[in-house]
Amino acid sequence: MDSNDSQVIVSETTDKGFLRELIEANLTRRLIPKGLSWFGCMGGLSLVAFIIQLSTGIFLMFYFIPNIRESLASIQHVSHSVPYGWLIQRIHAIGPHIMVGMVFSHMLRILFKGIYRHPRELHWVSGACLLILTLLMYYTGSLLTAHNINGHHPIHLTRIYAIHVAGIPLSMALFMGIHFFMVRKTGICESL
């Protein structure tokens, strides 16, 4: 065995050790306070609802054409011709109502419990920004279909589409990063 082979083995062993340490520290050996409320899962549910919206939205991006003449036809094509397209489209349409409901319940619980206090002010700020962005996301999404149906709105479909699929999701990813970083740093409120 030459020195290069031994270096590769040491590197792989270190990588496996690092990965195992990461999983054990964050998952298998991690301890949390006992008796956390089931209502504490509302934040996690908002994330699940967002992931559902993101995955169905990516699917619809392959078929939707942000063009005044072709957009209505592309929506109809997904509904009637693409296998399970109707289901994906329906999930994407129903999802915002559930997602906003989850975010509202999460924020009301935080508000009434007073969990936004020091040192968790930034949790509230990032969460409130995420709620506003969620509402904007719905609004831009509804403009896409409303424009298709009415056909005479003087709005730029391509710009609204770009804001809906790239601008707002990227901003949301940024605020989510801040939110999760702060939650990891300060921890959840233990007096639940």
């Binding site: 964050n26 050996r29 301890l31 949390i32």
Partner: peptide, 11 residues
């Protein structure tokens, strides 16, 4: 006694 494992309980 005041603690519980994250996995599988919370997960």
């Amino acid at each position: 006694e005041m603690l519980e494992p994250f996995s599988p309980n919370e997960l």
